[in-house]
Design a protein around this nucleic acid. Structure first.
Lengths: 136, 136
DNA sequence: GACAATCCCTACTAAATCAATAGGGATAGT
DNA sequence: ACTATCCCTATTGATTTAGTAGGGATTGTC
């Protein structure tokens, strides 16, 4: 399965996407909102920054923002950034190589179809469908 | 990526598939043929046996055979047996859950389409296409 | 019945990876 | 100056991976 680190990264980007246009979010805010250990999140956000997904503002009133619109960041981008490629073709091919390639292809296909704008929308729909209706 | 243990299991089953009908193969034979540490392979074969993929014959002239025809064993069966499920749905669903489910679905789809009879055929074709032609 | 080749079972270990935590340094707004 | 923020390196404990070790049980052959 996906590592916690990677899941934290996805959640952090999602939080930043929701906050986009409202100034920077501090590490602590993101950590609180998504239940991520703050010191761990710090390293993750630095990683995301180095790969061009986030930008940071230092000093007081500082924090993190997305470097690009949520629409232009795909789940697959973040996953590849944190986990590296799922399968790397080696020099010698056996019967299984082509199958790992196929698996990689379909997996990439799934996560690259989803950008963070659509994740926000999905999240809203999920919240809507899960809100219990207490009316009589 | 896939663990070495799982890859060894796949290779072992493939070796047994190729040997099917020609009596049992010893652990050592499989280990030599597929370049797997014999003591490690021992544990893997036991695991495969407990899950009904292989059978063993003890004593001299003993060894391992496939418990079913190669056609009836799929790659996905072996992988699930060794690695467990890639994703297990938890009690609480978030935006990502449905995506992991979809990823699991497509991945399972790929490896469950391939049985070991077709792997043998693929291997033969690969060997054919890779044999260098030294004729003038 | 002795012997040798095989599978069977439990326990142990070394290395790598995962999931953080710790301690300070640099920067910027007030 | 003070404080809230990000920045960087190093360290740690737990878990998983990839084996290894030592012996026990079974069965065919002489």
């Amino acid at each position: 399965m996906i590592s916690k680190k990677c899941l934290y990264a996805l959640k952090a980007v999602l939080a930043l996407a929701r906050h986009q246009g409202a100034g920077p979010m501090t590490i602590q805010q993101i950590a609180d909102a998504q239940e991520i250990p703050a010191r761990f999140l710090e390293a993750i956000l630095r990683d995301l920054k180095q790969n061009g997904f986030t930008e940071s503002i230092r000093g007081k009133e500082g924090g993190y923002i997305l470097a690009r619109p949520a629409r232009e960041i795909r789940m697959g981008d973040i996953i590849t950034c944190l986990e590296g490629p799922w399968y790397t073709p080696g020099p010698d091919t056996d019967v299984f190589s082509t199958i790992w390639e196929e698996a990689d292809r379909v997996l990439t296909g799934v996560v690259n179809q989803i950008d963070f704008q659509s994740l926000l929308k999905r999240e809203d729909e999920l919240r809507f469908s899960h809100t219990p209706d207490y009316s009589i």
